[in-house]
C-alpha cells in the first residue's frame, strides 16, 4: 500500500536516488502530487449520473468506455477551490489495483521526477486530509508539493467508495 513511504525508507541510505515520478495537480492554492503509475488517464469533466444517498463529494458515475466509474470531487471533499464545472475542469482517472476511480481537481500541472533528498517528513498538523494519507512533502524550488498516497485515501472508509464489508 504505502509504496512511496517504502521507497523512501528503502532508498534513504543511498541519497539522491530517485523516489519516483509524480503527477502534480492543484487543489485551491495548494499543489499535490500522486504516483504517476496510479494514473490511467486524464480527461475533461462530462455529465455524471448522480447517485442517490451518497455524500456530496461523490459526484456520481460516468461511462468510461463501457465501464461504470465513480467520480469523486476532491475539492468538495477537502473544501478547497471553487467548485465549478466547465470545460477546464479536469478528471484524473486512477487505476488502483484494478479498481477505476476518477477524481476531480482544479488542474493538472506537471509530471515530475522527485529525488529522495527533496522529500521531507510530514509534521503533525491538523488538516481536513488525515496525515496518514500524506507520504511526504516535496520541495521543488520555492514550491511545496503534498505527496498523497492516493490508493490508501481512495480505499479509506471516509471516501465511501467501497462496501464497508470489503474494507480492510
Amino acid at each position: 500500500m504505502n509504496m512511496v513511504a517504502e521507497e523512501v525508507e528503502g532508498k534513504a541510505g543511498q541519497g539522491g536516488s530517485v523516489a519516483g515520478e509524480f503527477l502534480t495537480f492543484v487543489l485551491g492554492s495548494e499543489a499535490y502530487g500522486l504516483e504517476i503509475l496510479k494514473v490511467q488517464e486524464i480527461r475533461g469533466y462530462d455529465a455524471v449520473t448522480q447517485i442517490a444517498n451518497t455524500p456530496a463529494f461523490i459526484k456520481g458515475v460516468i461511462n468510461l468506455r463501457g465501464k461504470i466509474v465513480p467520480i469523486v470531487d476532491l475539492r468538495v471533499k477537502f473544501n478547497m477551490g471553487k467548485v465549478e464545472y466547465n470545460e477546464f475542469t479536469v478528471v484524473i482517472i486512477l487505476n488502483l489495483g484494478g479498481r477505476v476511480v476518477g477524481i476531480v481537481v482544479d488542474g493538472v500541472s506537471d509530471v515530475m521526477q522527485l529525488e529522495e533528498s527533496q522529500i521531507r517528513a510530514v509534521p503533525d498538523i491538523v488538516a481536513s486530509i488525515d496525515t496518514q494519507y500524506i507520504t511526504g512533502l516535496a520541495s521543488v524550488g520555492e514550491k511545496m508539493f503534498i505527496l498523497v498516497d492516493i490508493e490508501k485515501l481512495m480505499n479509506s472508509q471516509e471516501m465511501q467508495l467501497m462496501d464497508s464489508v470489503a474494507m480492510h
Binding site: V48, T49, I68, R99
Partner: peptide, 23 residues
C-alpha cells in the same frame, strides 16, 4: 455492476449504458 469500481447503493441493483452513452 456498480460494485466493480464502486460499491453497492441501496435501491440500485446495477447500472447500464444508454444509447447516448450516459449511465
Amino acid at each position: 455492476s456498480l460494485e466493480t469500481n464502486f460499491r453497492k447503493i441501496q435501491g440500485v441493483s446495477g447500472a447500464t449504458i444508454m444509447g447516448d452513452g450516459s449511465v
